[in-house]
């Protein structure tokens, strides 16, 4: 089973040279640490920045420079700032190559639920609905099962959804899966030491395997 850092490391391998990428809060934020220096990737922050750099030194903290998680950040050389309408224009206009975000549930047809638990305090969807409705490519980073041990890869989402038929790929602590165009999860890779049976048993939605010999994911 992978820890959250290894999930982030595996997802980083999906990012290609020249990509503009939006990273959500949680595991997706960690992905930035594993992007190889050999490729040129621009990170978008939906509050109005292309070119998120590393966290600043304490002496350089700037309250006027934060990411969508409200953390203080720095800018890369060549970064650009803009307003929120422009930011979501580039998101809805499909100019961002890849969106990586967390989820509470994903259904076998690619629906995602990650913003609201009925009966609990509703904090709001932020930019998640805009991102999932428009991203060219969406990768979900999450645990395969919730804390109660129940699968988060379902036939249908039980929680209020954030978007329909939008998730293409999922990286969990157990596996890499894709959502097939006709519906259903397809197992592409398994985490080191995890069996195909274990993954199938942990998946409530329809699942097929890509081959008789599902490879272990490479994390280097």
């Amino acid at each position: 089973m992978l820890d959250k850092y290894s999930i982030a490391r595996r997802i980083a391998k999906e990012i290609k040279d020249g990509f503009y990428v939006n990273l959500g809060i949680g595991i997706p934020t960690l992905v930035a640490n594993y992007i190889p220096e050999s490729i040129d990737v621009t990170l978008q922050s939906e509050n109005g920045l292309l070119g998120i750099g590393p966290f600043p030194l304490e002496k350089d903290l700037d309250p006027d420079l934060i990411n969508a998680g409200k953390q203080t950040i720095s800018m890369t050389k060549g970064a650009v700032l803009f307003d929120s309408a422009e930011s979501f224009a580039m998101i809805r206009g499909e100019h961002i190559n890849l969106t990586i975000l967390g989820a509470m549930e994903v259904s076998e047809n690619g629906d995602i639920a990650n913003w609201k638990i009925p009966g609990k305090m509703v904090k709001g969807m932020g930019g998640a609905m805009d991102l999932v409705s428009s991203a060219k490519e969406i990768i979900v980073a999450m645990q395969h099962c919730n804390k109660a041990g129940k699968s988060k890869l379902l036939k249908e989402c039980t929680l209020p959804i954030t978007g329909v038929r939008c998730v293409k790929k999922i990286v969990t602590d157990l596996a890499v899966l894709e959502v097939l165009p006709e519906g259903g999860f397809c197992l592409l890779e398994r985490a080191p030491g995890v069996s195909v049976d274990q993954i199938i048993n942990s998946t409530e939605g329809k699942i097929t395997v890509s081959s008789n010999n599902v490879p272990e994911m490479g994390l280097d």
Binding site: A128, M129, T162
Partner: peptide
């Protein structure tokens, strides 16, 4: 509660004299 991009665009539209627009955000939700 309004999707952030929709909120930004609704405000932009208000200032720009565009009474309404179509957006994919929130479809099916």
């Amino acid at each position: 509660l309004i999707p952030q991009g929709t909120l930004a665009e609704r405000i932009r539209a208000g200032g720009a004299g565009i009474p309404a627009f179509f957006t994919p955000a929130g479809y099916g939700t």
